[in-house]
Design a binder for these strands. Structure first.
Length: 425
DNA sequence: TTTGTCTGCCCC
DNA sequence: ATTCTGC
DNA sequence: GCAGAATGGGCAGACAAA
């Protein structure tokens, strides 16, 4: 099916109708600013490159969002960005592209789905707080506590992704918009302007208020300053920072993950990383590339009081091909016909193991879980704890016995700790 | 009617 | 989202 | 370096089973 291999289709179009690398770039830009592969194909077939050159940024035609690379230290970031950058809060919400023409407003998701119906309140915020007649702006939509203006975790925002009961959810889970880019304003395409000038345009066009603000930012070339700003972002409930190039070439790279924007998140930093040692208690068969081996493992913490192993996450990324090949061998001797008596799990694995093998796992944070049973009921009735964005670090903890794995109590501590960090200011 | 399981050009 | 692997 | 393809948590919905 189409949509995933779209880059391949663009290649084919360039070869069939363009005949060179230059045409490929034109065709790709047409696609990136219209996100309409069908139309691009039709135009290039009927009118050739001349037709393609006429593609323009238009309100209510979503632009493919620019993405960011990742780096794990301020040093690397500043070096990559030529010594200085604009660092902005990376809010933990949903990315939204807001299109406005007069009173008409549409919101698009990162994958260019029209999500206006889910956010009538955000639509109204854009209508009221954007002074330009016509505009395409980007923002992070974040759940907030309306009393304290505190930012709430992504899980809260998820309640807004619904078809029914939108009005109720709107009252129960209010949102704020943190604007971070301007791609089009009153007839002017800004996508080929440098970021600082787009940001200035953005600030000129929004009428700031409690619920609509420009993303918090500083401009700096100082390591210490960058690091402090990062800590501040974490304390305010953000994921970290997005560091942006301020060079003349810092255009909006629609649909691309260039090095103009760089993500800096807490779990990328090796020093203060929340790594955890977990016991393999089950596995799931893989699909596609992983057919014939395990696709993911089921991992557990150790509960000292009950002497049981409680699932806390599945793990399916971070494995090299070599890891994937040797996992079945490594675990073969521990296979048991049904869930081991000392394992607590609400999930059903394809293969169960006696708790023996310990792996090191990296995660971003601890979340309340409806399916995992680690420390169930200890924070909230009926909820366990789980790991957000889990991945294998590559370390097999052969030095550890199952009972030496990270305990459920320790995970509870980690959860409490991250709440403390947010409330700290 | 309630409860469980699975899915999503899903969001991250 | 993260990560690894061909190209 | 980039695109593609594996995989994660978790929510509301859809639908099946009890």
């Amino acid at each position: 099916r189409l949509g995933i291999a779209d880059m391949t289709v663009l290649d084919a179009l360039a070869i069939a109708y363009g005949g060179g690398k230059e045409s490929r770039e034109l065709i790709e830009r047409a696609y990136n600013i219209s996100s309409d592969l069908g139309r691009v194909a039709k135009v290039v077939a009927e009118n050739g490159l001349e037709g393609i050159k006429k593609f323009k940024v238009m309100v209510f035609e979503p632009i493919r969002p620019m993405l960011a690379e990742r780096l794990s230290s301020p040093e690397e970031i500043l070096e990559k960005l030529g010594g200085k950058c604009i660092a902005e809060y990376k809010y933990d919400g949903e990315r939204v592209q807001a299109h406005k023409k007069g009173n008409e407003v549409a919101l698009y998701s990162r994958r260019m789905e029209r999500i206006s119906d889910q956010y009538p309140d955000a639509v109204e915020l854009v209508r009221r707080s954007v002074s330009a007649e016509e505009a395409i702006l980007e923002a992070e939509c974040v759940a907030v506590d309306i009393e304290t203006n505190e930012l709430l975790p992504f899980q809260e925002l998820m309640h807004r992704r619904r078809k029914y009961g939108v009005e109720e959810a709107m009252e129960q889970y209010p949102v704020s918009l943190f604007m971070f880019d301007a791609l089009y304003v009153d007839g002017r395409d800004l996508t080929l302007k440098a970021y600082p000038s787009r940001r200035t345009q953005l600030e000129n066009v929004i009428k700031e208020n409690d619920r609509v603000k420009p993303a918090r930012q500083i401009k700096t070339g100082n390591l210490k300053e960058l690091e402090n700003f990062f800590e501040e972002a974490i304390e305010d409930g953000c994921e970290g920072l997005i560091c942006k190039s301020v060079g003349t070439d810092s255009v909006y790279q629609a649909g691309a993950r260039g090095w103009m924007w760089i993500k800096y998140k807490r779990d990328y930093k090796s020093e203060m990383t929340d790594t955890v040692d977990l016991v393999v208690v089950g596995a799931f068969y893989g699909r596609g590339k992983r057919a014939g081996t395990y696709g993911a493992l089921l991992l557990a913490t150790y509960n000292h009081e009950s002497d049981t192993f409680e699932t806390v996450t599945k793990l399916g990324t971070g494995f090299t091909d070599e890891d994937l090949k040797k996992l079945p061998e490594l675990l073969r001797n521990h296979i048991v016909p049904r869930k081991h008596s000392r394992v607590e799990s609400s999930l059903t694995a394809d293969v169960w193991f006696e708790p023996k093998v310990v792996l090191e796992v990296l995660g971003a944070e601890i979340t309340l879980s409806p399916i995992h049973v680690c420390a169930v009921d200890s924070i909230r009735k009926g909820s366990g704890l789980a790991i957000r964005f889990p991945r294998f670090t590559g370390k097999y903890r052969t030095d550890k016995k199952a009972e030496d794995a990270t305990s459920s109590t320790e995970v509870v501590e980690m959860y409490r700790n991250q709440l403390k960090q947010i409330g700290a200011s």
